[in-house]
């Protein structure tokens, strides 16, 4: 019974954080601030949702695999955000260099 309440709580909070991330992606004014909202909230939302799946299945191979997906997403999501921000920053810098030359 306590487990079920915990699972429902995890699912609802993961839905809340996913919604906040999406709202931030739509509302924020420029690329970097959009990245702030989407990266953080999506990482936590995915972690909570997959934790709920692991708790629902108990001790089984599915739980191990979903924990594996959590670890993978939590390592790769900040890296992906960093590489998008870097490519945006460097291409903007090149463009402003070209403009100052002209």
């Amino acid at each position: 019974m306590i487990m079920q309440i915990l699972i429902v709580l995890l699912l609802v909070s993961s839905g809340f954080f996913f919604a906040v991330g999406t709202l931030g992606l739509i509302r924020m004014p420029d690329t970097y601030t959009r990245m702030h909202a989407s990266t953080k909230c999506d990482t936590l939302g995915a972690g909570l949702a997959l934790l709920a799946i692991a708790l629902y299945n108990g001790i089984s191979i599915i739980s191990v695999k979903s924990i594996l997906v959590i670890v993978f997403i939590w390592i790769t999501n900040p890296t992906a955000a960093h590489i998008i921000a870097k490519s945006k920053y460097n291409s903007e810098k090149q463009n402003s260099d070209l403009k100052s030359l002209e």
Partner: peptide, 19 residues
């Protein structure tokens, strides 16, 4: 870059959806 951010977010969400 905005489009890449959106696609990145969508791919995370779809992975959770498949789970």
């Amino acid at each position: 870059a905005d489009r890449v951010v959106a696609i990145d977010v969508i791919s995370t969400k779809v992975a959770v959806l498949i789970a």
